[in-house]
Write a protein that binds this DNA or RNA. Structure first.
Lengths: 248, 248
DNA sequence: CGGTTGATTGAGGCTGCTCAAAAGGTGTGG
DNA sequence: CCACACCTTTTGAGCAGCCTCAATCAACCG
């Protein structure tokens, strides 16, 4: 299952890992940078689905990279409700601040099985000193992430459910599919239950279900067994008012 | 009008400017740091209410500090709708990235008359090199801001209108009133129209009006002529499920 | 004094929620 | 191999929070 996440677009074997691919899209890297990332990848461990990676209130002492699988930032309420603040896709990192020792105000947990490298803060700081291009790429990655957060906020604040869902699908498709072929259907794994989608969108799972059916019957998408197929990308983006950021 | 914003708690004259006050609350500053901030303040200019400070798509070449008055990040829609993403209060800054030249994905505009210092990026970078405590304070300020953004997102995604409004009031009161006396009413300027509140909360101005009336008739607050009075702070925070962040 | 902006109120309707139940899938134990 | 529990998806009925449209009123301003 998890192994197919990175390969849903049918690329050649032996390609660089997800982190390298993501960062290379943001800033040119040198061979030394790539070797460093490969070394980090070697320290990655496998974690099951639904595992907490960081609890609200914890003081992070490391930065983690997601080499494979999905995770999410979230805030939980006493009554069981949950808001997903951001999705973490292969290549993403979290616990981003390299210096200030501040407790987290949100939790992080895996959504699928995931391969994760946890690098102590000091090591990252030291490595970045000797790898300026890597540092630039990471800074840009942070900007991109914040840009997604703002778009997500607009989504929650301003869009009705149908468009909100369409926007999430466009965002994920865009983040995953930088190398997608534009003709024909786009297809990717979206390993979220309807309940998790609801937590991300600020809706109930019942309503998510009905919204997905409307998108399906409109011929825009298909979503079954964790596979999202976009039939009409142009119309979906128009509906969602989706605009790709300047960097991402 | 604007001159009273900083003085609504009736403090002695000649106290440090808003930026210094905010940063000192986050990390200890030295006399040299304070002098630097005073120097920056001297370069501040007055800007009218409702003026754009940065347009979506612009590539920022400076970092700006708000010494007096209010401003907001926002995203506009074609149809005239607007989402306010964050409020900027006296002491806050924006266009925060010191390096990457990335176009803004949101606009910034004043909500009131405001006094603003615009410092070129290179100057800031150079100054921070020689003022490590200032650099620490600014990094922490950035963390606090991101924490507010996440809380705002939860607000938009999960809370019904009444609680959403209560949460915004608590947040603003908290950010403004670090030195407030806790007994009796809390009172501060909230120079937003109901339409602007609606843009911040993802509601219509009509509904904002009704929600304010409910809070008023419940004895929780009073809001007239841009002055917010909190009668029952404990109940308001409980209603809003407001928790102050670890730093702020 | 007319024009504009913001606050307020009312009527009516739709979106999205709550409550409830059933169906399909999957893993577990007997 | 079946029974059972559990999770996810799906469907229905009814309700209410919030929106839309519209009009009125107060305050300010040229």
């Amino acid at each position: 299952m998890a192994a197919t996440i990175d390969d849903s677009y049918g690329s050649p074997p032996r390609r660089p890992n997800a982190v390298t691919r993501k960062l290379e899209a943001l800033a040119p890297l040198g061979p030394d940078d790539r070797l460093m990332l490969d070394e980090w990848e070697r320290s990655a461990v496998m974690v099951g689905a639904g595992q907490p990676l960081a609890a609200e209130g914890a003081v992070p002492d490391s930065i983690s990279w997601l080499f494979e699988g999905w995770a999410a930032w979230h805030k939980d309420f006493r009554d069981g409700r949950r808001q997903i603040l951001a999705l973490l896709l292969p290549g993403d990192s979290w616990e981003g601040d390299p210096e200030a020792r501040v407790p987290l105000d949100h939790g992080v947990r895996t959504l699928t099985r995931a391969r994760i490298a946890k690098i102590p803060r000091e090591v990252v700081t030291e490595v970045l000193r000797g790898h300026p291009r890597l540092a630039t790429a990471l800074r840009r990655a942070d900007l991109v992430e914040q840009s997604f957060l703002r778009a997500w906020m607009v989504n929650l604040g301003q869009r009705p459910a149908l468009e909100r869902m369409a926007h999430l699908i466009c965002e994920v498709g865009h983040r995953l599919g930088q190398g997608a072929d534009v003709t024909g259907d786009r297809r990717f794994e979206l390993p979220l239950t309807q309940l998790e989608l609801a937590s991300a969108l600020g809706l109930t799972s019942v309503h998510v279900n009905r919204v997905l059916q409307r998108l399906r019957s409109g011929g825009l998408i298909d979503f079954r067994d964790g596979i999202m197929v976009i039939h009409d990308h142009a119309r979906l983006c128009a509906l969602a008012d989706f605009k790709a950021g300047p960097l991402a």
